[in-house]
Design a protein around this nucleic acid. Sequence first.
RNA 1: GGGCGGGUGGUGAAAUGGUAGACACGCCAGUUUUAGGAACUGGUUCCGCAAGGAGUGGAGGUUCAAGUCCUCUCCCGCCCACCA
Length: 764
Amino acid sequence: MTEYNPKEIEAKWQKEWERQGLHATPDSIEGKENKYVLVEFAYPSGNLHLGHWYAFSIPDVYARLLRMQGHNVLYPMGFDAFGLPAENAAIKRQLNPRTWTFDNIDYMRRQLRSMGVSFDWSREVITATPEYYKWTQWMFLKFLERGLAYQSETPVNWCPSCKTVLANEQVVNGACERCGTVVEKRNMLQWNLKITDYAERLIDGIEPLDWPKPIKDAQKNWIGKSEGAEVVFLIAGSEASVTVFTTRPDTIFGATYMVLAPEHALVQEFRSKINNWNEVEEYISKARNKTDIDRNAEGKEKTGVELKGLKAVNPATKEEIPVWIADYVLPNYGTGAIMAVPADDERDREFAKTFNLPIVTGYPKAGLEDFGKKVTKYKLRDWVVSRQRYWGCPIPVIHCKACGTVPVPEQDLPVVLPDIEDYLPSNEGKSPLAKASAWVNVACPKCGGEAERETDTLDTFVDSSWYFLRYADPKNTSEFASKEKLKQWLPLDFYSGGAEHTTMHLLYSRFWHKVLFDLGLVNEAEPYIRRMNRSLILGPDGQKMSKSKGNVIDPDKEVERLGSDSVRMYLAFVGPYNEVSAYPWNPDGIVGVRRFLERVWRLNSKLGGENENSTLLHQTIKKVGDEIASMKMNTGVSALMILVNDWEKKEKVSQEEYEILLKLLAPFAPHMTEELWHTLGHQTSIHTETWPKYDESRLQSSEVIIAVQINGKVRATFSASSTIGKAEVVEKATGLPEVQKWVGDKGVKKVIYVPGKLVNLVVS
RNA sequence: GGGCGGGUGGUGAAAUGGUAGACACGCCAGUUUUAGGAACUGGUUCCGCAAGGAGUGGAGGUUCAAGUCCUCUCCCGCCCACCA
């Protein structure tokens, strides 16, 4: 028997599997059920890091188990190829984003193959290819048709470094999620998708899903449903009124003043009646220029200005109350106006104290709808999808002076992203595409007159909202995917990815899917039934890996040192996959896994024994299958180690049982098991074998160890037949000298017997 | 401020209310006619020579029996956050 040489055998089998097309997945196989295992596709950043290995190789173990258990398993991979990060990286290197991205894809594909993951590359999807984004554009037009895509001039988040607008979800603590630059507010004409129309359904749909509770809660929280009432406050001495939203209409008798957002329309409407207009105007312009960071820095210190000369009437008390503007009232939540109840609301109280406004306590409580009508409000905002950047999917719309906004006719799709020289973003908020005049200037599809193409591109999250549908039918040129093929694979059986997508990709794509469902284009309202967030691999120092900290583990080097199978198996072994946790990479820990694989390799020289059909073997078969299915790979691996530890003590091992071990190990270490399998004389792949079956009746050993407790503390153990009865156990237990020592002459008051496990003797 | 997770050896972690610490790393001792470790054997929760005692952040409780269930409390992490 030769030595275990992973480098050699891994390269050999990767090549051979590819040659055989082992992982190409047909749309259906007679007698097999389809299963769709999905991982978030790769972003072509340029290099595979350990996170990719963790993200792809562990679900691969699961996919391989399902295959061996007789399913037709789709496990695809693709590239989320448009977007800011790739474009920024390309600009930094003075490369065209297209060249940069597609070179990265070629390189990463090769790296991915070294993982020995069973991706079906024949179904690869790349969002930046016209074959793909034709359908992104087509779907966008469907949204437009339905009134779910619209343009509006609204204050948006502008990243001055990336020189583009960002969605709310992409702004973290007032800074750009991608580059960390403080985001500014700008008024710009933007394309939006009406995700708010789906707020209620996005909340309702989430309940029955098999998702971890924290993700469900986070999404519900982000959508932020609150039930309350809208109450109309009249402006004294005028016909005008202001509607406020409150979740506590019962406190209306305590409302002693009202506050509007500085941006509220009423302020401008009454500008001539406001006595201190200069002061008010100054406050408004200050509030407008404040970034979210500034606002946070001020903490909870309240600022505001009274609109002097204006009074509102509290509909409950009929009293005239002052009207203020303050930036703690947000323009885009509720109605942009509140009734302030300083006795009951902490923020209102603080504001009232700062400006000496009246606080009344002990007021009567009102009924829910006495003074207003019941309404529901959401924190969720519409999804701003315009990006003033080159590297994205063109928005398929033409602006005509005569006809207005005209959709690009379906037969003209895709609107191909042109190759341009100057792709740098501009400070004015104009897409670089605006400079490609040959591309921009077109005839209006409606009237034939002069018209211009929309030059903004779509947010990358639009591209990734439906990629998993394309895998079902990746070569289709007449539809994004046929409904029949979609039916064969969807909804997904399993979707694994990062927690950072909870309120972004996972929310956007659910929304997208619901719209497609309403359009009759997909068969189900929810795309992902089972979702799992993976945990995180940290550097050896327990810190998040980063180049600046110098704690980055390069998977290529680990593969070179110990082999792909060792890397995969170590990642499986560090801890449960399905937990929001983080595991430090232990360079010695992976060596332990390599040692285990070598032990399995060496067992080969002990072959020739008789079948033992041991309890341990049956228990291991059950355990490994169960643990992989629940993504608790760590305990699955340890079960295999226990079996191997046991066999190592034996003189001989039966070949048939050794082959069972190899099959159990195959999902974790696909290369090594394949090599050993062929060494044993098999001609076909171990990965097409069926998963070993265990015998239920062999799970329980005939010999058991009974623990004897005195008052709940273990004082002795003895072994006995598993069929031993209570009376006999008590007799044996009380006969033991170390038990008698504790019982003494006190006598046994009570006996609890747990069959085959323990007996507890209660003594005085 | 709101929401959600967690606290178990030196480390990663195991434990349907039923022998806490499986499995692995590290460490210690030894073996292999040099060395090395990605080899082998044994040991390794803490205190104690031992008998024994203590022990899953802390304090109570339920139970024959609690890491697991209940009450209170401390600490840590993540997400959202002036959302009316």
